[in-house]
Design a protein around this nucleic acid. Structure first.
Length: 269
DNA sequence: AATACCGCCAACCGCTGCTGT
DNA sequence: GACAGCAGCGGTTGGCGGTAT
């Protein structure tokens, strides 16, 4: 919103928003263009970006539309400054993966590769000014990485499938949790301490051991209760941030009330 | 008060890899 | 297997706004 206004202002002031030879508009997006793009994605979903111009009546090329959506309009984007936890994760992951911004972004839900890239450039690049042959070293690292990636790819695909199945189970579990919360609200009595409660909640699902262990890992991370083990490093890192997020919410909702419990479950929905 | 500098961010560009034919 | 089209990625650019001089 703010940016759209700013964009519109920029366009007005600077005469940007050029029409290319091919007829594509360039430069800052207007509020109207944003509206059309959002409408298009609602109707047709993400993807097929080259159809956007035709179907949505936008004079933007597919690339531009995709970028605008991914970096700014997506509803699941996290607004606001990078938190210290996120900063730590960015540093860790950059040390691990280098400039693979999209990979890093996948571990920071709601953050875009562009955002992380920009953040890194402005916050860390100066601090970590490398020797002159850094580019060469990076190339070598990159080729090694690609080799490694190919080897891992097949394994990864299998793991992704497994992960997807787990997510579906988790989604169902969250729906169940909502139901429980509704029940609690109906009963309208004070909720006991969160730790005790998590055990009670989990015990309500005696036949779904996976859900139970996941639940324990989320809410009892501070109590040294073992989380489900993952053999895959990336899944582990993906989970790391989610866990951080949950713990933040846990602290914020530390009042042992039903409202607090609401906040704990909300991030999954 | 003027201006130089810097951080931030949106957007573009070129390249690469994937997928369908 | 070759090719074309497309999506995605990383690098780069350029303007705005805040701060220092």
């Amino acid at each position: 919103m703010e940016s759209s206004c700013r964009a519109a202002v920029m366009e007005g002031n600077m005469g940007w928003g050029v029409i290319e030879e091919e007829g594509w508009r360039k430069g800052p997006w207007t509020a109207e263009e944003d509206r059309l793009l959002i409408q298009y994605v609602r109707l047709h979903g993400e993807g097929r970006w080259n159809s956007v111009a035709r179907l949505a009546g936008l004079k933007r090329n597919g690339k531009s539309c995709r970028l605008r959506w991914v970096n700014y309009l997506r509803p699941d984007l996290k607004k606001g400054q990078i938190t210290p936890q996120e900063e730590t994760i960015i540093q860790e992951l950059h040390a691990r993966w280098g400039n693979r911004w999209s990979t890093i972004a996948r571990s920071l839900p709601g953050r875009t590769d562009n955002e992380i890239k920009n953040y890194w450039r402005t916050h860390f690049k100066k601090k970590t000014k490398a020797p002159s042959d850094a580019a060469e070293k990076a190339k070598i690292r990159s080729s090694k990485r690609q080799q490694f990636q190919r080897q891992q790819q097949q394994l990864k695909q299998m793991q992704i499938q497994q992960q997807h199945q787990q997510q579906q189970q988790q989604f169902q579990f969250n729906l169940d949790m909502k139901g429980i919360i509704n029940m609690l609200e109906e009963n309208d009595h004070r909720v006991p301490s969160i730790s005790q409660e998590t055990q009670e909640m989990a015990s309500m699902y005696p036949n779904t051991s996976e859900q139970q262990s996941y639940f324990y890992s989320m809410f009892n991370a501070n109590d040294n209760v073992s989380a489900p083990e993952s053999s895959n490093e990336e899944i582990l890192w993906d989970g790391l941030w989610n866990l951080d997020d949950i713990l933040c919410n846990f602290n914020a909702a530390s009042a042992t009330t039903k409202a607090g419990l609401h906040n704990l479950v909300a991030p999954f929905c």
